[in-house]
Amino acid sequence: MVRWLKRSYIYLIFAFLYLPIAVLMVYSLNDARSRGMWGGFTLRWYVELFQDRTIMNSLYATLIIGVSSALIATVIGTMAAIGIHNTRGVPKKLIMNVTYLPVLNPEIVTAISLMLLFVFSRMRFGYITLLLSHITFNVPYVILSVLPKLRQLNKHLYEAALDLGCTPLQALWKVIIPEIMPGIITGLLLAFTLSIDDFVVSFFTTGSGVSTLSITVYSMARRGINPKINALSTIMFTFVLALLIIVNVRQAREERKERNGRRVPKKDSPYDPRFGSA
């Protein structure tokens, strides 16, 4: 009885969380411009979506910025994590505190501070400013994904590699990097999704002619409801869902490995709830 009540409560919460997404999906197949009624099944909005130059261009921009900022942030962030791991005392504290700054700052503050920087340095707003901004807010998340993996690493692994004849660079490349690869991949995926999800920072740091999906949705939504956005939402949700399943299967596999006693229990990494802090 109590158990039944508990479950019902969770199902209600789920209904609340999924209702808007379900409504969007259903309306994306609705052949009527006025949302109130069902006008029959159609794929018209999907066709129009793909013919819409503005949306397609912003999709393109979003993907380019997402992929390139995630890759660059992963390289910088992984190197930084290894460096931080080998730093002690005050410098380490200082670096970690500044690293947390973009994570803890309200998005809008990060956004306007970057905007001021670009104005101040007379940069042209556009792809470059957008990319620099995205890398900036992505790097801390990569660092926070990689650091726990480094902490779990056996301290003597690096020394063992040197002992077996690796140069320091080889030891890093052949031993350390493969060992922390799960953290690097998590960081990369996290950076990519954060970049795709971002609106606020992009809104302040983009220039005329360059628009990400979030910005396009924002300007369209302010003018009222547009069935093409429904179609777009459906596609994006499906895509994200697929990505999520891949990530989770990967994680489950890794956990199984851990349970077999190959690794130390993993430290929690309390940053983005979507990746589960548990």
């Binding site: 969770i10 919460i13 789920f14 969380l17 999924y18 209702l19 808007p20 997404i21 409504v23 969007l24 309306y27 006025s34 949302r35 109130g36 999704t193 795709i196 999800d197 609106f199 999906l213 979030s214 949705v217 924002y218 939504a221 409801i225 956005i229 429904n230 777009l232 939402s233 994006m236 949700f237 994200v240 869902l241 990505l243 999520l244 989770n248 709830p273 979507r274 589960g276 548990a278």
Partner: peptide, 29 residues
């Protein structure tokens, strides 16, 4: 259950908010 709980968060923040427009507007859901 936890996975189901976080899935909606993966939807673009703008789209999630926009979805409520569709539900709440005068002739909405």
């Amino acid at each position: 259950i936890m996975l189901l709980f976080v899935v909606p968060m993966w939807m673009n923040f703008l789209l999630r908010t926009y979805a409520w427009l569709t539900i709440l507007e005068r002739n909405g859901f």
